[in-house]
Write a protein that binds this DNA or RNA. Sequence first.
DNA 1: CCGTGTAGTTACAGACCGGTCACACCCGTG
DNA 2: CACGGGTGTGACCGGTCTGTAACTACACGG
Lengths: 206, 206
Amino acid sequence: MAIADAGIVTLKPRERIVDTARDLFRKHGIRGIGVDTIAEAAGTNKMTLYRHFGSKGELVAECLRDVAKEADDIWAGFERDHPGDPLAQIHDWIRAGAECIGEDGRGCDLANVAVELAEDDHPARRVIEKFKTDQRDRLEKLCRDAGISKAELLADTLSLLLEGARVSRQSVGAKGPCARFVAIGEAVVSAFAGSRPRRPATRKKK
Amino acid sequence: MAIADAGIVTLKPRERIVDTARDLFRKHGIRGIGVDTIAEAAGTNKMTLYRHFGSKGELVAECLRDVAKEADDIWAGFERDHPGDPLAQIHDWIRAGAECIGEDGRGCDLANVAVELAEDDHPARRVIEKFKTDQRDRLEKLCRDAGISKAELLADTLSLLLEGARVSRQSVGAKGPCARFVAIGEAVVSAFAGSRPRRPATRKKK
DNA sequence: CCGTGTAGTTACAGACCGGTCACACCCGTG
DNA sequence: CACGGGTGTGACCGGTCTGTAACTACACGG
């Protein structure tokens, strides 16, 4: 875990494998790429890959955990940029979602794997379910902290909108309905929060 | 192999193949099932399959066209049940969407294939894009006919919500955000239509 | 020096894949 | 009866897949 040399230039095989696998899984899907290709692209070999991850499924799960960790960083950014202003953080969330949509053609790695892998005993499923539930719950907490009465409903609405936008992007492209994600999100939020007194920059007083 | 499961032996091989393929593709994904298994499950063989469909990709495309045809029937039902009442048809659409979500764990076949097949030259992609665009446009027309001013925005919103609900169902199950699809959809529609006089079809000249 | 752990290499197993081939068959029609 | 189109059969091709085994190379700390 704690590597003695903080500035290691050459990553260890394990990290190289996860990085490479994330990239290739994202591009080709789980079933669209083989472990041998991944290992080779990571500058190592299949044997080392299997020594670190017992199976391809475990590697997939590890990759998704890695993705989830990055999402945590994004959420930390919301809190850092607008501490104590949940409404502003919600708007940040919308903007961040739009950025994710615009990134590349592929949608959410977690959701993609959930769609691709029909088996319900896959090691990745636990990761996916936990991640998606966490995301929604964080959103709900944000809504409640913003003083929105129907916090759960708004959290569900925004969750579905983002999920839908990211998959719609893959079906009909960036010019489809996903292009209006920000406008829709903002409209929904203001519809829910509109009845409430709007305090943009001031600290929330309970 | 007992083919005569439900007396479908009367159907010609082509229809049996499409029916079976739709079922198995839906259950296991495109890459999760082989043409040989499909042919056998359809009570025929691989050679006959390839005589009707030049490739696995073409079979996938044909299956999706079949799905799209069924969707047409559902839309015809909206018009039949509430002729000249676009707002009621929108509510039908919401209810039909909820039924689709509740059907089984798997979401929209079209969207699933779009997610699973990263290649952009797959024969199914044309079908998917056309279908999804058509669905959205029909929805927009319904909204416009209902006298809703921001028809495109509502159509996009409802499209994203359904798409999101069906993929969310696959990630976190039926008790997740998708459970509130109807409530959310109704709320959104009434928010858009509420400001307008809700007199259907009297103004519209077609 | 030795012992140990990690990484690389080669080869292989066993299964499955999409797709093609030659050939036999059945059955309705002329 | 002959014919021809649609169908069934099994073998086969070349390739890819996950996962394992045996062995080697090397760095490290004692």
